[in-house]
């Protein structure tokens, strides 16, 4: 490949200003998160406890990994993957199926993640070769896939003595072991999209598909990589999910879809593609994962959670859109 990498193609000063913009997003999100924690502590001093920490970190595991997958799709210009929870559940169910057949753990993990990857390949075939908009593709495959899961699997029981269940319940360096894949993926995604040539290609394709095509990047290959990659990340979430869910139900995905999209939008990812920071995503996942626990401490029933999260998403997308309008100066 002789063409220039996208990072060199961009004007250096632009990249610097983008970095400072992400820093502002991260600081604002951190401030909001700390504010939430502080008012919760003022309200009930026992908020800062081991139980809260454990609840928040467990919330972060799944939402965090799915948000990285979703952020991957958004930043690469794939709009949104509305079927990412199906990728997660395919993997979780496959783990149960293969475990019951007595496969050894590394093999069953790899094969079940590959199953999610096949699902992502199916999505990308519809997007790339039939040229259907990803939003419609993933809406349809998410819906149909959910239907297939409901018909094929009524529920999946994870053996509490299995190493998968051990992984979900144990702790490592003070955090739940299940928290670490999310943290490592965040760091990995940050460096991948910032410094690797392949990662910069995703950003380029997301920011301006036509000019990246003119530079010699294959749009088709990038789209396939995006949707397969997002499904595989969804599959990793599926392993973690199987780890701490004794009984997996096919409709479990609906709970995660909204916080995941909200986290990505709050973190400043532009739904138009090409813009976003995975470090900011980590902070926004942390903030959103704290809300349910904080609500309980404020004496609100947990059903308030969906109401509040829904309106946080509306506010977040409004702010995001407003920011773009201001930048473009319509």
């Amino acid at each position: 490949m002789t063409h220039l990498s996208s990072s060199r193609f961009k004007v250096p000063s632009l990249r610097k200003s983008a970095d400072s913009e992400y820093l502002a997003t991260i600081l604002i999100l951190l401030a909001v998160w700390i504010f939430l924690v502080v008012i919760s502590v003022i309200n009930r001093s026992d908020f800062l406890s081991k139980a809260t920490f454990s609840a928040v970190t467990f919330n972060m595991c799944i939402i965090g990994i799915l948000a990285i997958g979703q952020g991957f799709v958004v930043i690469s210009g794939g709009i949104l993957d509305l079927s990412i929870t199906v990728s997660m559940l395919i993997t979780s169910f496959m783990i149960v199926v293969f475990y019951d057949r007595g496969w050894n753990t590394p093999l069953l993990i790899i094969v079940s993640i590959l199953c999610a990857g096949v699902f992502g390949l199916f999505n990308s075939i519809l997007v790339v070769w039939l040229r259907i908009n990803p939003l419609i593709v993933t809406l349809a495959t998410g819906f149909a896939g959910g239907g297939v899961l409901l018909i094929v699997f009524d529920r999946g029981l994870v053996d509490p003595k299995s190493s998968i269940a051990d992984f979900g319940t144990s702790h490592l360096f003070g955090f739940p072991t299940a928290w670490w894949p999310m943290a490592l993926l965040t760091i990995g995604a940050h460096f991948f999209f910032k410094y690797s040539r392949f990662g910069r290609h995703f950003l380029a394709v997301g920011g301006n598909p036509l000019s990246s095509k003119a530079m010699g990047i294959s749009l088709k290959q990038m789209r396939v990589a995006t949707f397969v990659g997002a499904s595989i990340i969804g599959g990793i979430a599926g392993i973690v999910f199987a780890g701490f869910t004794p009984e997996i139900r096919p409709n479990a995905g609906t709970y995660y879809m909204l916080p995941v999209i909200a986290a990505v939008v709050l973190a400043g990812f532009s739904l138009a593609g090409g813009r976003g920071s995975f470090l900011a995503l980590f902070v926004s996942v942390g903030f959103l994962s704290t809300i349910p626990t904080a609500l309980v401490f404020f004496g609100l029933e947990s059903i308030w959670q969906t109401f509040i999260q829904g309106f946080i998403l509306i506010i977040a997308v409004s702010i995001d859109a407003y920011r773009i309008v201001k930048v473009k100066g319509r």
């Binding site: 909204l258 909200a262 059903i303 308030w304 959670q305 969906t306 109401f307 509040i308 999260q309 829904g310 309106f311 946080i312 998403l313 509306i314 997308v317």
Partner: peptide
């Protein structure tokens, strides 16, 4: 967002 919020 309003889908999930209003159902809540």
């Amino acid at each position: 967002g309003s889908l999930v919020g209003l159902r809540g």
